[in-house]
């Protein structure tokens, strides 16, 4: 589904990704862990097409297409979804209007018919139920004045609605207390399916108590330096990241 090969990317003069390899197959959940500044968020941003990064080498193929050649919205049309670490507040932009514009943009791009207001509302209420969210969410402006937990839940809600093939969760656990974390993780787990893959980017192991990954990768200095099963996350919990030396190599 996603094949990243020797990916290199810079921000300004600084090379953040230094030849990263990663393959994600349908239905798999990959956790990407690593210390601050290792390039975790850069990977999420480069894959989703955010400005400000220059890809200097390597490739990323998603659903058979050259991902890096596509605009952000085209990536979404193909089924890529980024759950933001810091969801953006959009005052004055109504959440329902936003969700409908997003869903119908994707449907249109795929040659599907756009949903009318009634079918859309039916669908959205169904999704709210799955995630145990309150309908009042629909009337508010996108993320405006939301608490940290509400913002993250709104991200998962969008993911439920847009039904991506590959979801990248960028530090979804940051800023959440344990209750909020559980709610968000439950939402993510409800969306697991054999066709849907996820990349869970996180600094801490604790999210992985709730979202069990199939694979865990350790990212340091722009490369994946170790990969393993979920037991690797537990190991990191006890050893921390101190064993990675300044060059990003395992000591």
């Amino acid at each position: 589904m996603l094949v990243v090969n020797g990916l290199r990317a810079t921000v300004g003069e600084k090379e953040i990704l230094q030849g990263l390899n990663l393959t994600v197959n349908p239905g798999e959940i990959h956790a990407i862990m690593g210390p601050n500044g290792s390039g975790k968020s850069t990977l999420a941003h480069v894959l989703s097409g955010r400005d400000g990064y220059t890809v200097t080498g390597g490739s990323a193929t998603f659903a058979g297409q050259d991902l890096l050649a596509l605009e952000p919205e085209q990536r979404a049309h193909l089924g890529l979804f980024l759950a933001f670490q810091y969801p953006v507040e959009l005052p004055g932009v109504n959440n329902t209007y936003f969700l409908k514009a997003a869903l119908n943009s994707i449907r249109k791009a795929r040659g599907e018919t756009e949903l009318d207001a009634v079918s859309f509302l039916r669908l959205i209420k169904e999704k709210l139920k799955i995630l145990h969210l309150d309908e009042s969410l629909l009337k508010r402006a996108v993320n405006a004045g939301f608490s940290g937990g509400e913002k993250k839940r709104n991200e998962i809600f969008q993911m439920a609605l847009l039904e991506p093939k590959l979801a990248i969760l960028d530090e979804t656990d940051s800023g959440l207390d344990i209750d909020a974390l559980r709610v968000v993780a439950d939402g993510v787990n409800a969306l697991r399916s054999p066709e849907r893959s996820m990349i869970v980017v996180t600094h801490y192991q604790r999210l992985l108590d709730y979202i069990q990954p199939d694979f865990v990768h350790v990212l340091a200095k722009g490369q994946i330096i170790r990969s393993g099963g979920k037991e690797l996350a537990l190991e990191l919990e006890t050893t921390g990241y101190g064993w990675i030396d300044a060059e990003g190599l395992a000591a």
Partner: peptide
Amino acid sequence: EPEKLFYLRSRGISAALARRMLCLGFADE
């Protein structure tokens, strides 16, 4: 703001519609 534009585009919304949505959001107050 580029962050806002990117947020909308990452949800499949075209750049042109995203800009319009943000302007309307600004006007909505």
